[in-house]
């Protein structure tokens, strides 16, 4: 495992966006993440896979400090974004999250209109100077979220009225509108049907052009389809991390192999 990390590091040093070293996460007395080292590269889709409860979502939430909202959660180790420690006391999680956006497992549109859902982020971060600019951001985001054509005629309709797949693409568009540098996705397709899943996967592939994307998934096929790098988590340990192709065809660790062949998980 250390070898693999080193390999990744050697290959893409200049492109590393997020780097995690010796990360430990505790939930109360539970040691949920044990000593994880990972590097996330720019313009790459990195997939976190592993059985349920292996800590992959927990680790993902460390990357934009969403775990701060949970009182009993404690994070140790170092995570840097562009070389800056995101757990530095001087860092404001609000500013961090603007740079590291997140899309959640369950589509969670706000009880507002489609327009206001998208405009929410730009408004709070002051990205638009006037209504015309905001309109432009909303349209651009919806287009990049691949949902523009479906909703352009009903931007005033509530976001909660859309179908599940549309809602999730809306949430992705909402995250894009804030113009983050990294996009974290926590099992974005688990609540969607296969067609909607395919649409979202296609979207993820496009997003890679501009962002570094980290996706947590319990579906190995999905990881194989969308990601360039894959990390396999098991019982809070990062078991293996490397090129997706290699992980799936030639895993080094027996646990990874067991998982991929369906013996554990």
């Amino acid at each position: 495992m250390n070898d693999m990390t080193l390999v990744g590091k050697n290959v893409d040093t200049r492109n590393i966006k997020i780097s995690a070293r010796a990360v430990q996460v505790y939930y109360g007395d539970t040691h949920a993440i044990k000593d994880v080292d990972v590097d996330i590269e720019s313009n790459t889709v990195t997939a976190f896979i592993g059985p349920s409860g292996c800590g992959k979502s927990t680790f993902l939430r460390c990357l934009n400090r969403m775990n701060d909202t949970i009182d009993i959660c404690r994070v140790e180790g170092q995570i840097t974004l562009d070389g800056e420690d995101i757990y530095d006391p001087k860092v404001d999680p609000v500013q961090l999250r603007a740079k590291v956006g997140m899309v959640f497992q369950k589509p969670n549109p706000f009880p507002k209109s489609i327009y206001d859902n998208i405009a929410y982020g730009p408004r709070i971060h002051g990205l638009a100077r006037n209504k015309a600019e905001l309109d432009e951001i909303v349209e651009k985001s919806l287009r990049r979220g691949a949902i523009w054509d479906e909703v352009k005629d009903r931007l005033d309709a509530p976001g909660t009225g859309l179908s599940g797949g549309q809602q999730q693409r809306l949430c992705i568009a909402r995250a894009i509108a804030t113009e983050p540098e990294v996009l974290l996705m926590d099992e974005p397709c688990s609540a969607l049907d296969p067609i909607a899943t395919a649409q979202v996967e296609e979207l993820i592939d496009e997003l890679r052009q501009s962002y570094s994307v980290v996706i947590v998934t319990h579906s190995m096929q999905q990881a194989a389809r969308v990601s360039q790098k894959t990390a396999f988590f098991h019982l809070g340990n990062l078991v293996e991390f490397g090129e997706t192709g290699q992980i799936f065809t030639n895993p080094e660790d027996p646990r990874t192999e067991s998982y991929i062949t369906g013996r554990i998980g």
Binding site: V94, M102, V103, K106, Y120, I124, R174
Partner: peptide, 13 residues
């Protein structure tokens, strides 16, 4: 809670 997460995840205070 997902509603709050959605907003906090966008960098809202």
């Amino acid at each position: 809670q997902t509603m709050r997460d959605g907003s906090l995840g966008l960098g809202a205070t």
